[in-house]
Amino acid sequence: MDTGNREAMIEVRNLVKTYYTGGKPFSALRSVNFSISANEYVGVIGKSGAGKTTLINMLSGVDQITGGEVYVNGTAVHALGDDQLALWRGLNLGVVFQSFHLLPMLSLLDNITLAMDFCGTYRHGKSEKRAMALLDSVELADHARKLPAQISGGEKQRVAIARALVNDPAVILADEPTGRLDSATSETIFRIFDHLIARGKTIVMVSHDRTLADRVNRVFNLEDGQIISNGGEEL
């Protein structure tokens, strides 16, 4: 079985995504190729509509791939079924969204343990302990029993990051994680990501903010569904 480039943590070949609205095709991604090594910090920068969210959705497998191949940590993502994808995603990926996506009816602690529940990774008693440790790592242990509505946006995003880390994934995908936060809060979030890089994680972050370029190791500039410049690598 072809597992792609063994060196690469993420390998994308001829990735194509086409949407059909009103029967007319719209190419969100047109033949994208790249490869990301372990522990790289990659920023995907582009305007709205450039296809950057589509790209990250292809990597996480939350949207159907129209054509091409995506390998993440040795797994052929394009070949997985819906249920396999869900489990694989839960175990191998940490996904962070622009609008946090915490479940409003569950406490912060439960939001984190829920992810372990679905993947069956930790026994119930242990999962709570681990969730507390993760909350502690984003300095929110004191708020563990609160509901998401009771904390600020920046705090929500920290919980979302803690949740993304439950199963200790090698790869973290973040879609505009600071898009809804003010400048000061954004800084805290970026520091957490820096810390994760220091711990050896691979991070792909999407943003329309050009200043992201200064924070990451490598930048992919996306425009009209194509990578127009790819920091450091030949296209």
């Binding site: 996480s60 489990l87 175990l91 996506h101 915490l102 479940l103 993947c119």
Partner: peptide, 16 residues
């Protein structure tokens, strides 16, 4: 709908 999306994103299968 969003909750279901989130559940799936963090590893819930259709069956669960």
């Amino acid at each position: 709908m969003q909750h279901i999306g989130i559940l799936k994103a963090i590893g819930a299968r259709q069956g669960s």
